[in-house]
């Protein structure tokens, strides 16, 4: 056993680094969100910025759109990713090749994904637009449905792999004996899924969903590049709004209040999902 002193000695650098690069910046955001500044002088204003943000209909709609976007993105990516992972063989050369190829989107910066899909959906000569018109669909980013469709497809392209790989990693951790035991019991495929695979999968899927919720809720570059938040405000999400305000020093407080609010939403979601996935099931 390592001693208490050793334990703290080993932990200290990590804790200090996280305080410096995580706690302090976050505390600063919180400080800005409760102060008004004139130049470098700050005055405490309490919850004024929060009130201003939360009571503004523009902001409320941005939050609702972000939630809807996250819901749709996760609603497509989670089941799709799980389905693909269940069909992916546990091991073998083909699986390794597929895994490597699936990491490719994850290695693509958001900004590149955004421009790539902008190119794919160019009017007339983008391949997506062309395919849509071939199917008799007037795909046009000035239409709300087309704009949302593009953003969801883009998010699925970028991130479904993450779900597949998390689920695949979880499935791989299940010992072969479990499957053999299930076969001996003549379990149905649904039974195998429900009682052998799901218990091992749910924590992995829970972590994946938390990460995905955070990223999709805070989506920024993709709508900015492809749809410019439009048509009208149809694809303006919460991060876009506070980046716009943050760029001018004067609205530092407002932008920070929105940041804190967004982080709180992500935390609540993460906590709820974590409780859900680690809940003990009362069965053998």
């Amino acid at each position: 056993m390592i001693s208490r002193a050793q334990t703290f000695g080993l932990l200290a650098p990590a804790v200090l680094l996280l305080i410096a690069t995580g706690v302090i910046p976050l505390a600063l955001v919180f400080f800005y969100s409760t102060h008004e500044n004139f130049g470098s002088e700050f005055f405490f204003v309490g919850v004024q910025w929060y009130q201003e943000a939360l009571l503004s209909p523009d902001f409320q709609f941005n939050v609702l759109r972000s939630l809807l976007f996250s819901g749709l993105a996760l609603g497509v990516e989670m089941p799709l990713g799980l389905f693909i992972a269940l069909r992916l063989p546990r091991e073998g050369r083909l699986t390794s090749v597929l895994v490597v190829l699936m990491v490719l989107p994850l290695l693509t910066p958001n900004i590149v994904v955004a421009y790539l899909f902008k190119a794919l959906s160019l009017p007339l000569y983008g391949p997506l637009t062309w395919m849509a018109s071939w199917l008799g669909w007037d795909f046009n980013l000035n239409h709300v449905f087309s704009a949302w469709f593009l953003l969801i497809v883009m998010d699925c392209w970028h991130w479904t792999s993450l779900i597949v790989l998390f689920a695949h990693a979880g499935l791989k951790a299940i010992p072969e004996e479990y499957y053999r035991a299930a076969a001996v019991d003549a379990a149905t495929p649904w039974g195998v899924f429900r009682f052998v695979q799901w218990p091992r999968l749910k924590l992995m899927l829970g972590i994946a969903a938390i990460l995905r919720f955070m990223d999709s809720f805070m989506i920024y570059a993709e709508p900015l590049v492809t749809t410019h938040g439009g048509p009208k405000n149809a694809t303006t999400f919460v991060a876009r709004a506070f980046v716009q305000t943050k760029k001018t020093q004067f609205e530092l407080g407002y932008g920070s209040a929105v940041s804190v609010f967004c982080f709180m939403i992500v935390l609540v979601f993460a906590f709820a999902l974590f409780k859900l996935t680690t809940r003990q099931e009362h069965r053998a």
């Binding site: 955001v29 938390i210 955070m214 967004c262 992500v266 935390l267």
Partner: peptide, 16 residues
Amino acid sequence: FLLFRLIAPVILVVPF
């Protein structure tokens, strides 16, 4: 520790 992974980088631009 993991909670820090849930902070979107865009939130920390100004303080950093």
